[in-house]
Amino acid sequence: MNTCKRIRQHLELADFMAEDSFSLAIEQHLATCAECRRFQSEMLQLKHLLKTEQRVSAPADFELRLQIQIRRVRAEQRTVWLPWIPTPALSALAVVVVCTVVLSVYTSIPGPTGISQDPTAAHKPTPNSGPVQLVQPKPLKPEPAEGLSLVMAATGSTEPQNRPSPRSNRQHDLNPDKVLVLVRDQNNTENFVTVPTVIFGAQPVINTNAPRTEPADDAQHIF
């Protein structure tokens, strides 16, 4: 029985070899064992059946249908182009976008001595009474059409001063209750006037027609 099993395994591994190529031992066994002979015969018939199995062919319009499908795929590729961008290129683009956003956010954050973008910063109490922050740090130019021009700034100083540079203004303490107004008269003389902080949307109004005698005490004449 073990011999039969071994012979059959050999027949299977021989991959349907022709009978004349079998070894002498196998041939002798096949001559005496009917079961193994039947096994070999069935395997040979099976091989013949599989080999002579009728082959099917592709239909006549196979290539035409394929061409249509290829054109459809091409059209889809043209419309949906994004997925065809190679992944490294997309990754590089994403990195560039992220870096740009991070840089823009970083530069917009004020530093310890930076200029605040918040126009209401002067009204907010700060615990450390930080440096003066100019709301409008543009250089002043003579404007002949106007009698007076205003520049508002927050400051801790109540004394009128000469026009300070932004750097010198930063040296002052911030007083949230006062607003320093730079007034330029018709002679282009500039004076600072301290006024109370604007509350509830009230805006300082300067009457340019009113006679001005003491610029330092303008707090009462402003409103």
Partner: peptide, 28 residues
């Protein structure tokens, strides 16, 4: 390869129409 592939897929599926479709998908 159209005929060998169609024949192979047909022997796998025993369904000619589907075999042709899958052969087309292969070439696609």
């Amino acid at each position: 390869y159209r005929n060998p592939i169609t024949n192979f897929v047909f022997r796998m599926l025993n369904d000619y129409d589907r075999a042709v479709e899958l052969a087309q998908e292969t070439f696609l």
